[in-house]
Design a protein around this nucleic acid. Sequence first.
DNA 1: CTGAAAGCGCTTACAG
DNA 2: CTGAAAGCGCTTACAG
Lengths: 344, 344
Amino acid sequence: MPASRGRVTLTDIARACDLSRATISLVLRGSPLVNAETRARVEAELKRQGYVYHRGAANLRRKVSSAVALVINDLSNPFFAEFAAGVDEALADAGYVTLLGSTGESAERQQAVLSSLLEHDPAGIILSPAEGSDAARVRNLLGTRTPMLVFNRELGGEWDYLALDNVRGARLATEHLIAQGHRRIAFFGGHQDSSSCRQRREGYRAALHDASIAPQPQWLVECAPTRLEAARQTGALFVRDPAPTAAVCYNDAVALGLMAGLATRGRRAGQDFAVTGFDDIPEAAVSAPPLTTVAVEPRARGRQAAELILQRLRDPQSPAMLTIPPARLLVRASSQVVPDGASA
Amino acid sequence: MPASRGRVTLTDIARACDLSRATISLVLRGSPLVNAETRARVEAELKRQGYVYHRGAANLRRKVSSAVALVINDLSNPFFAEFAAGVDEALADAGYVTLLGSTGESAERQQAVLSSLLEHDPAGIILSPAEGSDAARVRNLLGTRTPMLVFNRELGGEWDYLALDNVRGARLATEHLIAQGHRRIAFFGGHQDSSSCRQRREGYRAALHDASIAPQPQWLVECAPTRLEAARQTGALFVRDPAPTAAVCYNDAVALGLMAGLATRGRRAGQDFAVTGFDDIPEAAVSAPPLTTVAVEPRARGRQAAELILQRLRDPQSPAMLTIPPARLLVRASSQVVPDGASA
DNA sequence: CTGAAAGCGCTTACAG
DNA sequence: CTGAAAGCGCTTACAG
């Protein structure tokens, strides 16, 4: 019987049990209406024929969806990989399936990916926008039927938004370096046109301001938020004297790249230069030296994002909310160094 | 009009254009049968009403599926994250959507995840089996309707299988260390009951054998394939004299953990101990020192896995194939050290 | 080149 | 407690 190529359907089971399809449907969804003996018979037959529920057909009829689309830049970034893991975990627990999409940081590709995912009728969307995303174009694609949660970067428009507390995080890191005695502190990495980078710089500047330190233009070094680019840009920190003695990095990838860049110049983070990161990706704890960083717990943020979008599905009327989890500083060896001028 | 809550359907467009649903359907799928003027009218109306195609309904009618399920252990592992990125990339290019599932290395959870994903009617499945997976149970769940590609670990059963050339990779790494003059070479990390670990040990042993080196039992150190566990187990390499001067590690995570463990003991990979990894995760190139490792190109493997399953969908009759991409050794600084006895 | 009818696998009132 | 009928949004022969 299972040798047959075709799918086993409700109708097959109904015929075999000499019942109507309606009754089988009730059994499948655990309705208390159906007689215990009947239920047992049906369940045996379901197992015997290897029936598998066609959720798509049921969803079509019921006009519901059990999928949520997750659109991110790229899983290669551990931050997003952790985030995605958290999203998937929480969605699975709630009985939803995750439709994956990645944009590779391209706004064009993002349009294509969203449009393709929409055809699969997701109940909701979680989007970490690619750089250069245009809110109007996205809205035009989505219409107003599909709720979306925007994560990590601002996108304007009337969507739910889950943000990291970038200002506070960068401020904490900067204050920590100031407390160690540093006065010449760089902000290293990231692109100025990314909202998260702007916010982190703002926190950095605020901390300097509170300590009556005037930030120097050469303390701001831009670079793509990757390890490799950061390593390449390391030299830019030391072109002028007096050079900074510490750097608040845009994120952990950049910080790890900077530490590698320092090493190739015979310097060592935590020994003659202080470095802080942002994200607390798993590598941060095991790098050499371990990296002082701002914990944002991407996996927990992923779970949170999933829960927010699920909540929005239940209550479509509730106003779009802005949730900002508090950032927390993890002090490790990479920043545990006092500047030369202040030591001894 | 778009203010209405309901979905815009074919019927809405047909009514607005005073045509039948069949004609609209033809337009949607780009049939050449339909009159150019009619097509233009329809397309304008589709745009005007913000129509979005319901692929699920079409698939139901056509008895096809445009989804492929991807089931892995955990996206936290960069190896799997890269693999998943490759799979998603290739599937998207082919017009498929990726249904994500993760098992957290639990065979129980794997059953649950597979069973849930099956209800979403995937055209095929890509599975990297959790440790302790049981082929019979999986087969019982899947039946014979849904083709599956097994990746990375053996699972038995009649499925397509995409394997890394573990034996060859480990052999290459070991031969490289021998060529540097090492004679006491450990195999570090992994669990003996994982097929990939067994295969890598086999390659290691073969290389030793060819060099007439008798492997010592204390050169085999097991540990969970994570950075943290590897760092914790580092001491096990040095409990007896003479200690190994080099280690072939189960994978990159383990190798990075070992390098961290060495650092805390005042040793440094590439200076007084040689280390090789396996996988070539992105960190390997930027660790301090950079890690000599076996490139398996997880992203390319992901694309390959996607292409294999898509091919199987086109040709269900072709026999299950075993594809083994050649492993390649990337020599970097972590292994560029000659043992004490051999130097000077 | 376009339309009427049937059907994919399920669920939902409504009867009985 | 169970069944007959209609319908979710689409496609597919078959006519014309």
